[in-house]
Nucleic acid binder design. Sequence first.
DNA 1: GGTCAACTGCGTACACTGTACGAAGAATAG
DNA 2: CTATTCTTCGTACAGTGTACGCAGTTGACC
Lengths: 256, 256
Amino acid sequence: MNQEHSGSGDPAKSLELLWRRRPAPTRGPKPAQTVDGIVAVALQVADAEGLAAMSMRRVADELGVGAMTLYRYFPGKGELLDVMLDTVYGELPRRVVPGDWRAALDEVARENRELYLRHPWLLQVAINRPPLGPNVMAKYEWELTAVEGIGLTDLEMDATVALVNGYVHGAVRTAVEARQVIQRSGMTDKEWWLAHVPHLDQIGDLDKFPLSSRVGTAVGNEFDAPYDAEHAFEYGLERLLDGVSVLVGNRTAPEG
Amino acid sequence: MNQEHSGSGDPAKSLELLWRRRPAPTRGPKPAQTVDGIVAVALQVADAEGLAAMSMRRVADELGVGAMTLYRYFPGKGELLDVMLDTVYGELPRRVVPGDWRAALDEVARENRELYLRHPWLLQVAINRPPLGPNVMAKYEWELTAVEGIGLTDLEMDATVALVNGYVHGAVRTAVEARQVIQRSGMTDKEWWLAHVPHLDQIGDLDKFPLSSRVGTAVGNEFDAPYDAEHAFEYGLERLLDGVSVLVGNRTAPEG
DNA sequence: GGTCAACTGCGTACACTGTACGAAGAATAG
DNA sequence: CTATTCTTCGTACAGTGTACGCAGTTGACC
């Protein structure tokens, strides 16, 4: 599936929508819907059935209105997605944990992970040039505080936050895809592998890939439970923070 | 956009297609097309105009045949994507570099990066349960050799390769999206930011986000050239390999 | 109170998508 | 020569986002 991208209309209109600063019109019939009401329904559909199911007609049906009615409240689907994104970002607790930068970055990673797991469709919306709504701004600010005052340059701070966010995105994406592929196919990874081995053996000389066979089998035997995603996440996060720690150590104690 | 997922038909048919083991039929007219010919055209379209442009009708038009003709060669679009994926994986040089595991993992990361940059649509096809074609198998085998014999368990080997691949995927995705958003909007990130600041200032109290303002401005000033993607990639890869190095160090010298 | 501008709701239409179905014709086995 | 198998592909269907324009409602102003 494709990446959904957000609205590209003029900034003023978009920000008005995100910050709910649209001046109420004086004339004409009172609108029967609200931006928040539409967003709530859209979120319900996207959370329960995925972005692919969240068509404009579907959201409109759910509200009992015609499809084109939505376009009185949002210039297009992109802007609706923008507001949805900013809305769910508001669910982040944004806890400031006591301790060092590592504990803080760990918290950032975990909260983002929770959010992605709760709203998997987030994985499919582009994060470049995010809609600058109140919650998007607050999230970025909170993430930067995790790496403030530990000797990094501004550029390194941004790169580090982006690195952690990118990691979480990838890890959750893998986990969510794994969950979905099991549902869609009705097979676990192990069953899938076992269904392919006989044909592969006959067709493609499985002996030519000894490492793959060995490691693939080990992975299949060990990891067929949903806990493997948790495990992989922890493993990767440890590696990543270890890596950041090398950089931070160099900065705080410059003379190695 | 949504993630495209691959064919879910029976393994035998899929593997037959991937390894080109379809028995030639004895009766009936000779097919005018070939699997490879169709894949070549599909790749051309996907590389040049993205997955969204690569519809079945479009590929068929390009070949001068009817759309349904393609379904004589592939059960569905998913299987066509499977063969495309395995085909471009064949472009990997799969160099085995002299030196330690770090040099080898570095090479893995860089070759994958090159591949993603050359075929950005790869970022949009699901990588869970990849089509087990010859090149997919060879790629995995080659990646595992990079971390073989350095004291990691089979599970850690797989996790490490997945970690590096996941990182590259995320980093290139960000870079490619950045490139595309500049093309689509005709604005650099800096121009985009400067177009929003006045409205944000008026609407949303920019002073409430001091770190974001400071770091955002620094990033905007410094990174408006395409080289920032290169920079971010190097930075993240360093951190990641540093993290792996901590683990490998512990394994090879168990008593810390 | 009447008029007009502004506004809401929304039906219809258009150009797309993947692909199921089945008809028409070609090539070969018997 | 016939029957079978195979290829090509037109048509159709249920979707998608959204441009356009019409009908009806509301409030501001004279």
